[in-house]
Amino acid sequence: MNRLLLCCLVLIGGLGLMWAPSAQADVTCQSGIQNGGINFGNVDPSQSTAVDVPVTINYTCRNTDNQDAQLTLCFNIGYGSAGAAADGNRQMAGAGASRLEFQLYRDAAGGYIAGSIDEATMPQPARDVFTVPRKRWGAPGTYSGTVNIYAHLPGNQSSPVGSYNASFTPKLTGNFGNVSCLNDSYDDGISTMSPFTVQATIKPSCSAVTATDLSFGQSTGLLTANMDGTSVISVTCVNGTPYRVGLNDGTSASGTARRMKLSTGNDYVTYDLYRDNGYSQRWGNTQGTDTVAGTGSGFSQQIAVYGRVPPQVTPTPGSYADTVTVYVYY
């Protein structure tokens, strides 16, 4: 008689209730600089004071996997369309070969440049580390955040008047876990970052004017011959700024006649100021007539003033002085 032996294998488990985590979650991110770019506004780079602008980078990440994902997001920003200056600063381009330097930093103190993994001469990018939640009930998990970088435009530059800009095509990369942005295993396809521009405008302006005192020395006798002296006016204007320098007639003038007043009385010594060492071009304060014209270089420029006391009736001996105001028109 043939017999059949039957046996069954019983499988125990919650079918469909268990899953194995994938090696890498499915996360995509989008990012961009707030307001679409960085604008330094109207600047005077000839001054020693720098211009600093805080910059906000916004980002949003979506996770379509069934597990939470810790992510290091890296904001890679290169040198931009105007390239790098000799000192390593980024640049904006103006008319012709004009350039205006600036830099992007990861910290407000300007100690760490916000760089790009694609630029061998730049440090690592700005970054953020966070967790993107897993999808729930079929809907992707999302996480939104911000990262601050800092735009810095240094002073003491001689860039000429005009509009300046640079365009950037940044790249957003990510690593799973809390790791350095310099990790070579970053995922190029994880995210996108919108292009942006950096811009500034240099308008004609003058920031400083100083003058040395003019001394005619001492006379030991009668005022029967010319007594001459010189002074130097220093003017600092933005490169390319047309300007004119005028001098008023002083605090003790009689009409248009300049006079120095005795410190202890009401006696006067007449004198005048000239634009040339031939003492033929009087220096006044009527633009285009008796002023001195110049064009700013971005640095201090010196202009000589020539003074003369002509022969005259000698007044009471003593110390004589006058105060003349320098005007710079631009």
Rank of each mutant, 00 (worst) to 15 (best):
L222T: 09
D184R: 15
Q30G: 15
G298N: 07
Y186R: 13
S252C: 05
A108F: 08
L214H: 07
D52Q: 14
V161M: 02
T201G: 02
S180Y: 06
G246R: 04
V10K: 11
I149Y: 05
P204T: 01
L182Q: 14
V232N: 15
G246N: 07
D188R: 08
Y268P: 09
A109M: 10
L71G: 02
S46E: 09
L5H: 13
D272Q: 15
V55G: 08
S22D: 10
P154M: 00
C29Q: 00
R106S: 12
M18E: 12
D68H: 04
G138L: 02
T270N: 14
T291R: 02
S163P: 01
L17D: 06
N183F: 09
V198P: 01
G83N: 00
A97K: 05
S180R: 03
G229N: 03
L5Y: 14
Q218C: 04
Q47V: 15
P170S: 06
L223T: 00
L100N: 02
N178P: 03
N42F: 11
A23N: 06
D276I: 05
L73V: 09
T201Y: 01
R258L: 11
Y330S: 09
G318Q: 00
P242N: 12
N63T: 08
A23W: 03
Y306E: 10
A211G: 09
P242C: 08
S180F: 10
G36F: 02
A69R: 01
P315F: 09
N175C: 15
V235Q: 00
G138S: 05
G284F: 10
V305A: 12
M193R: 04
S231T: 03
N66R: 12
Q47K: 13
F196L: 07
S254C: 01
L17C: 08
L15I: 11
V305F: 05
T289F: 13
P310Q: 08
M122N: 02
A211R: 03
M92S: 03
D184L: 15
Y105C: 09
S219F: 04
Q34S: 15
T201I: 08
V292Q: 11
N175Q: 13
A97W: 02
V326F: 04
T236Y: 03
A85P: 05
A225E: 09
S191D: 08
V309R: 02
L182S: 14
G16L: 01
C206P: 00
I233S: 04
T146F: 01
A321P: 00
S180K: 02
G138R: 02
N156L: 13
V309Q: 02
V235I: 12
A114D: 11
T60L: 11
V328P: 07
Y279N: 12
D44L: 06
P123N: 01
A23G: 14
N239I: 01
V53A: 12
T49Q: 15
G78K: 03
S46I: 04
G141V: 00
D65S: 15
S254P: 04
C61N: 06
A139R: 07
E101R: 10
A97G: 13
G278R: 05
D187C: 00
L104A: 05
D276T: 05
Q47F: 11
